[in-house]
Design a protein around this nucleic acid. Structure first.
Lengths: 167, 167
DNA sequence: TCACTTATTGATAATGGTTATCATTATCAA
DNA sequence: TTGATAATGATAACCATTATCAATAAGTGA
């Protein structure tokens, strides 16, 4: 709630009106929610959370709004391989840092990292330049993700695969 | 057919038996198909193609086999955002080059590129090293993709958004 | 070669995230 | 306040992928 106002509700309003869209309660609630969390929420997560405050907001609207926000470039949509899309607010000037993701293929845990971002971004923009020149492809977005086993799961797997005494 | 034999059927046989799996006709057909194309086939694509030769191979088996091959690291599974998974043989020593993908968000066209791979790979392996140390995360795989508009679609979009005379 | 264990198959039904439909309601400029 | 139209939400449909399970095939040991 506070975050939304801090981010200047008027800005969102203008951004929406500029595209011919209206700013409505469900849209406000969804933006506010995304703005006050750093979690990787699924559409259902968003629905359940928003539903707590306003039980008349439907799941369909949540899907539609998220899709709209993605189109507008306000929200990023990710697929971490668990069969449902995840959404998070794109980085803004207000403290939200650009980051990439590591996905544990065993437990599904997502780790955000921004440690090696600078080098990555630099290489990416160089690559983008090369690619758009060679293929005349207008690049608007990129995706980098790492997959593997998180700290916890490494231990678990090792414990499970260790031969027992009786064998 | 020829491709399969060139790649040494015995090798596949050993690879499978080593994991306790059997090498069967459907599995052979699917590997052969993937080996003779560079397309990004969906499970249904594979099914339809394999079905031409052996109409008794079922869709379920195709899904299962692809999943198995992914588990074994023989096949890579991609999501290009059109709601269905795409599969391609992982690079082997036989001429298949490691590459990344650009995805046209308008028409869904996929472009393979391997031009800036070396730098990318180098940065990726450095990043992987840093990440696994910092987060104790055992990285087994990575994903890089670029999204944007292909040559064709840029023209189309521009033409469509140009105001008509009557307006 | 035969018998037997077990992996594999494939038709079918079920699952589940996401979208299409459509009548109703809310927004906002005039 | 009004009127044009954007937005909503309950419901049903969609559709890629999985689970089920009886039938079959592959490989092993005798």
């Amino acid at each position: 709630m506070r975050g939304f106002h801090r981010m200047n509700a008027g800005w969102w309003h203008g951004r929406f009106r500029g595209c011919g869209y209206r700013i409505t309660l469900p849209r406000q609630m969804i933006i506010e929610l995304l703005n006050r969390t750093t979690a990787h929420l699924s559409a259902e997560d968003v629905y359940l959370e928003v539903h707590k405050m306003h039980s008349d907001i439907g799941l369909t609207t949540v899907y539609r709004t998220l899709e709209l926000l993605v189109q507008m470039g306000i929200v990023l949509k990710f697929d971490f391989g668990d069969g449902r899309a995840r959404y998070e607010l794109a980085e803004t000037s207000k403290g939200r840092k650009h980051h990439h993701h590591m996905v544990c293929t065993n437990c599904g845990r997502i780790i955000d990292y921004a440690d090696f971002i600078d080098e990555e971004i630099e290489l990416l923009s160089r690559t983008e330049k090369g690619l758009s020149k060679k293929f005349n492809f207008e690049i608007t977005n990129h995706l980098i993700q790492f997959y593997g086993l998180c700290d916890q799961c490494q231990k678990t797997i090792k414990r499970l695969s260790r031969p027992s005494v009786s064998q």
